[in-house]
């Protein structure tokens, strides 16, 4: 399960996300952190420091500007607004397709082949894995039902990936005999 959230944090570009949040109007740094956490953060909220360093990078690149500063100073008191260049940057980022992830190597595949090579029961491995996957899916489904739209979106993404794994498991289970022959050769 941690795998899922880690994956999302890594894949996410915090800079572009914050820029996108600013498109609806100028915000304080603190507001930005709250908005991010609500929509994308879930289990891992942003640190203030992370917001501060990202915003100063964006300021330097001319993608945002300071809209106003409230009394008291400090980075969280600054109000940021997006610039035209910033809007263009978000557009470009959104328009660039993500590189599809290809799982050409996986531990599961290795396990199956190893089991076959060592004449262990690969079907057992597959069944165990299947149950584990389905258990994850059940938890995600449950969470999806209780959560808001954002929860649904993120859980669905995970569910579809798990489903893909499961399909592979099913196919492999169906092909085990052929696989056994191939490995034995």
């Amino acid at each position: 399960m941690p795998r899922i959230h880690g994956m999302y944090s890594v894949l996410m570009s915090i800079g572009h996300t914050l820029l996108g949040l600013l498109e609806s109007g100028p915000r304080h740094g603190y507001d930005l952190k709250r908005a991010f956490d609500e929509t994308f953060g879930h289990d891992r909220p942003l640190h203030y420091g992370q917001v501060y360093s990202t915003m100063s990078r964006l300021l330097k690149n001319g993608l945002v500007e300071v809209d106003g500063i409230e009394a008291g100073g400090g980075p969280e008191r600054k109000r940021y607004a997006i610039t035209d260049a910033g809007i263009t940057d978000v557009e470009q980022w959104l328009a660039t397709p993500q590189k599809p992830e290809e799982y050409l190597q996986s531990a599961l595949y290795t396990k199956v082949v190893l089991a076959l090579l060592t004449h262990r029961d690969a079907a057992d491995i597959l069944d165990t894995q299947r149950s584990e996957h389905l258990r994850s899916m059940r938890i995600l489904t449950d969470r999806k039902r209780k959560g808001d739209l954002a929860d649904q979106l993120i859980c669905d993404h995970a569910l579809f990936h798990l489903e893909a794994d499961l399909r592979w498991l099913e196919l492999t289970a169906a092909r085990l005999d052929k696989l056994r022959e191939a490995v034995a050769r």
């Binding site: 069944d127 149950s131 996957h133 389905l134 899916m137 059940r138 995600l140 489904t141 569910l159 579809f160 798990l162 489903e163 499961l166 399909r167």
Partner: peptide, 13 residues
């Protein structure tokens, strides 16, 4: 469909 099956409490194959 496994995603449909995920609505279950238990699974039989």
């Amino acid at each position: 469909e496994t995603r449909v099956a995920a609505y279950s409490d238990r699974e039989i194959v």
